[in-house]
Design a protein around this nucleic acid. Structure first.
Lengths: 307, 307
DNA sequence: ATGATTTATGCTCCATATGAGCATTACCTG
DNA sequence: CAGGTAATGCTCATATGGAGCATAAATCAT
């Protein structure tokens, strides 16, 4: 069972897809190509030592910008992804990358787009977007009704849970589940919707990959100090908070946020302050990289017994 | 972009590798082949609709056992993995699968091995294993000393943090970091160690993949109700606890564990009890699958503002 | 300059969750 | 019946997370 030779190799190709993220003030940005319709991608070259190094080299060459953090997202090889019948079967390996600044827009369109343009229902910073109630909920209900009794119930419940309908709480991490629900209900252009719900479509499954990246980032930001990969060397606590909010798509309690950051000793004062805050001048902070090693992982959540 | 080796595109192949886990009483088991030296793996067939379905079909065919839960782990294509020079470049996609029972051993070796056989330093249920202090710590210290000043410090610190040396607390989630540290220090057979530290080696990087799987499982068990995928339909709370302990490699506070499980309403009594506990008969419970949809994801950890 | 507006920062309070034990109850075995 | 093993019920101290109140220090419109 283990020795059957791998696939007749000539019908297989590998592709790398990157979701590169930056934060510009209050906007979460993602690097796109083709007028915002595609994520950057390229073939996996056999010359590279590993996938990771291949992607890193390729991204830095293309964007001329250092890549702070890089993490593998997901690999897929769904048959229906390959558009050309008879073309090679493509395995796509997607990555999430965080970068510190947005490259100065050289000549024309640098391609950094606000990601909520693609998934507008994900931004709850100003409360639940109206389009959920007006544009999504009715169409989802309609879709649920199409199914026979028990299935209809189930669909309705899924919609309610993922989108926080009828008074349920919004869970910002369910980005992928929400996109997939809309896809399943044929409400997005990628699923051949006649009249898609709001939100710009992308080529192939790039919007799904974006959703995966956002979900991962929203989850990870809570237990690993990765926001700092998106920040300049020094920053005010409010800017840091705004970055978190941009990613999470939710507002954060200012005082408690500060308490959290400071008690974890993640930052230290630079000693300087900045006045371009609009109000009282704010202290500048820098990330304490040294703490990273120690703060390896926190999470317990199991009633362990102490040693 | 440059291609170091001018190999035509036909030298690419894809392989699936599965880490199948089961729990047998207090033993965490993993399915192996070749007398325990390899994880089951096989080619990705072009006929399959997707990677996931390909793997699922293949596993169920091979093991004749249902696969409860399946999750992608990691994809890699390191050049040094391909042993045969000139052979195709292989992309390996690894999966973690959980199964409910251990298949009855048919004729001979069913291949389910206790995973601590491969990573003996990971089992802290009876306190920190002696081999950490006796066999690992000295060799790691030795390795640290090989480097010049500052690097030596750094190595020493990494070892102390990952293995919980000199009074630091043990973090059971750092399974992969520990294995990689030992690899880097050439203390495991896979890294051509002259006299490897205890722990059975595996072919290629299979032991690293196992470490990845355990790390993922140990992390996930804390915020998703996946232990139940390893349990029979009804079970006592102690059996459930033993399963968690087997995976986490640590003991759990019994009363608090019960409180946690019950307050989360993850289980319900079946109404029956069992007497083969050795002591007072225990109530039998079953997992409340319905709760899964609601308990989609819990974790906040950010000081969010309520709606 | 003056009061309104903005943001930074310091603190308090309270509800829960978590970590540790103590005490009892109910079976089995020799 | 004594002793052993588990199952269960409860209590208590502390840590953590969610909300607000209050004050300080700038800018801005009038």
């Amino acid at each position: 069972m283990d020795t059957a030779f791998p696939v007749a190799a000539h019908s297989l190709a590998a592709e790398l897809i990157a979701v590169l993220v930056a934060v510009d003030g209050g906007s979460p940005r993602v690097l796109t190509l083709q007028d915002g319709r595609a994520l950057p991608s390229g073939p996996f070259e056999l010359g590279h030592r590993s996938l990771q190094s291949g992607l890193r080299a390729w991204v830095e060459e293309q964007t001329h910008h250092p890549l702070g953090y890089l993490e593998q997202l997901y690999t897929f090889a769904d048959r229906d992804r390959t558009n050309a019948a008879g073309g090679p079967r493509v395995i796509s390996i997607s990555y999430l990358g965080l970068t510190r600044e947005i490259p100065a827009s050289g000549d024309h369109d640098p391609g950094w787009r606000n990601w909520y343009r693609y998934l507008p229902w994900e931004d709850h910073r100003a409360g639940p977007p109206g389009l959920i109630e007006h544009a999504l909920a009715p169409r989802l209900a309609e879709w649920a009704e199409l199914a026979p009794g028990p299935i209809a119930q189930e669909r309705q419940q899924r919609a309610a849970i993922t989108f926080g309908l009828n008074g349920r709480t919004w869970n910002e991490e369910l980005v992928l589940q929400r996109y997939e629900l809309l896809y399943e209900a044929s409400l997005v252009a990628e699923a051949a919707a006649k009249t898609p719900v709001p939100g710009q479509a992308m080529l192939l499954d790039h919007r799904r990959i974006l959703a995966t990246a956002i979900a991962r980032l929203r989850a990870k930001i809570k237990y690993r100090p990765i926001v700092f990969e998106l920040m300049p060397p020094s920053f005010t606590l409010l800017r840091l908070q705004r970055a978190v909010e941009a990613i999470a798509g939710r507002l954060v309690h200012k005082q408690n946020f500060r308490r959290l950051i400071e008690q974890q000793e993640l930052v230290e004062e630079t000693g300087e302050t900045t006045q371009d805050t609009g109000g009282r001048p704010a202290k500048l902070f820098r990330f304490r990289r040294e703490i990273m090693a120690e703060r390896a992982v926190a999470g317990t959540k199991l009633p362990l017994i102490r040693a």
